[in-house]
Simulated assay, not measured.
Amino acid sequence: MALSAEQKDFAARLGHDFATPALLQEALTHPSVATPNRKDNQRLEFLGDRVLGLVMAETLLAADQTAPEGQLAPRFNALVRKETCADVARAVGLGTVLRLGRSEMLSGGRRKEALLGDAMEAVIAAVYKDGGLEAARRLILTHWGDRIANVEADARDPKTALQEWAQARKLAPPRYVETDRSGPAHAPVFTIEARLDSGEVERASAGSKRQAEQAAARALLTRMEAGTHD
């Protein structure tokens, strides 16, 4: 089946001309709209995750030939995690061409982080199967771009860093408490407080609990490391 005009535009944004259009269509098909004659993207997602991991591992090793595994691992994790894949998906407009079931669309599926991240991995696999590893590598290096160059600044997971900060001072691990949830059901906004047993608290809001927790942890860690806590 030929690509639709929207799918052709998306393929152009990716920078890949599909010899087998069905691969891209499969990558864009969420399980909520799959049928016996229309495969969903879960198998491609599985493959794409591994292709992304291989390319990133090779890229990081080539970029820093002296870094030990302990430095490479957090950089790698920052580049392949679901949030990063979802960011790339948003940048290329993947959500606009996803094929979703009605209930998934009504619940804001085109903006869901996990759904976008999974679909981006499936697209990587589609390119890999269509054009080989070099085509997949070009796609990844093009669209991850500055994220690779700036990974050192992004590699430190705020929740992990805050927990390590607390442990080093013999404090209990931080707690994360949802204090508010607003917005419509298809696009909720979560407000989370990061709390230390010593009494310090920072609050953040985001479209997912994980993002709000990370933002609250980052704010609290910044405050504690700056020595501005009361």
Rank of each mutant, 00 (worst) to 15 (best):
S32C: 02
A34C: 11
T35C: 00
T35L: 07
P36H: 09
P36M: 02
R38C: 01
R43L: 13
F46G: 05
D49W: 08
V51G: 01
L52H: 04
G53P: 04
M56C: 03
E58F: 01
E58W: 03
E58H: 00
T59F: 03
L60W: 03
L61T: 04
A62C: 05
A63P: 01
D64T: 02
D64K: 01
P68S: 04
E69C: 06
G70C: 07
G70H: 12
R81M: 12
K82V: 15
T84Y: 02
A86C: 06
D87F: 06
D87N: 14
V88E: 09
V88G: 06
A89Q: 06
A89L: 05
R90Q: 12
A91P: 02
A91R: 15
L94K: 04
T96I: 00
T96K: 13
L98M: 15
R99W: 00
G101N: 09
R102G: 06
L106D: 11
S107I: 07
G108W: 02
G108S: 05
L116Q: 09
L116E: 08
L116V: 10
G117Y: 10
G117M: 11
G117W: 11
A119M: 11
M120Q: 15
M120D: 04
M120W: 12
E121C: 14
A122P: 10
A122V: 11
I124D: 06
I124H: 06
A126Q: 12
Y128G: 08
K129A: 13
D130G: 11
E134P: 02
A135P: 01
A136C: 12
R138C: 10
L141I: 04
T142N: 13
H143P: 01
W144D: 00
W144N: 01
G145H: 13
D146A: 15
R147M: 06
I148P: 01
N150T: 14
V151R: 01
E152D: 13
